[in-house]
Write a protein that binds this DNA or RNA. Structure first.
Length: 151
DNA sequence: CAAGTGATTAGC
DNA sequence: CTAATCACTTGC
């Protein structure tokens, strides 16, 4: 329902800005379809999908999902609504942690698969949330009028 | 609105 | 080594 793009070495908000390559950012340099999962603010996990070929460090942050199954499990993990609206909320609901960092999102236990194709014009863009650099880059993409987007 | 929380990072 | 930062969430 909602993602943000972090588009590589030239993007000041990307963890791999200036080709920063450390233990944390290493998965960003991997195959497209790799999970990049990082821990932030001392308590939250965030899930990204690596998007570009090996050695070009770019990814999309998954910010919101439409929950379609496993409500009871997600409810137990989260304790409350919203279940999957927010990058750290959806990780908690799905049980996503650093254990899956670097794994394949195409063949692993956590997968991203083709869903309903949105109609032209249903996806809109806007500024990314929660960053201080390049805030004017319209790299947040979300489904118009969706009740599931985080904002 | 501010606090919580600890890994990560740059800079000595 | 130290200190600043942080792609967030919750509760006031």
């Amino acid at each position: 329902m909602e993602v943000e793009a972090y588009v590589g070495p030239q993007d000041p908000a990307c963890h791999a800005y200036g080709h920063r390559r450390t233990a944390r950012t290493e998965p960003l340099y991997g195959e497209p379809g790799t999970a990049y999962i990082y821990f932030t603010y001392g308590m939250h996990w965030c899930l990204n999908a690596v998007t570009e070929p090996r050695d070009f460090p770019a990814a999309v942050l998954i910010r919101a999902l439409e929950p379609i199954a496993g409500f009871e499990t997600m409810r137990q993990r989260r304790g409350k609504a919203p279940l999957c609206s927010g990058p750290a909320r959806l990780c908690e609901a799905l049980g996503v942690t650093g254990r899956l960092n670097g794994s394949s999102l195409q063949r692993g236990t956590l997968r991203i698969v083709q869903g309903k194709k949105p109609k032209p014009g249903d996806i809109v863009t806007g500024p990314r949330i929660g960053i201080t650099q390049a805030i004017d880059w319209p790299l947040r993409f979300y489904l118009k009028d969706s009740p599931w987007v985080s904002r």
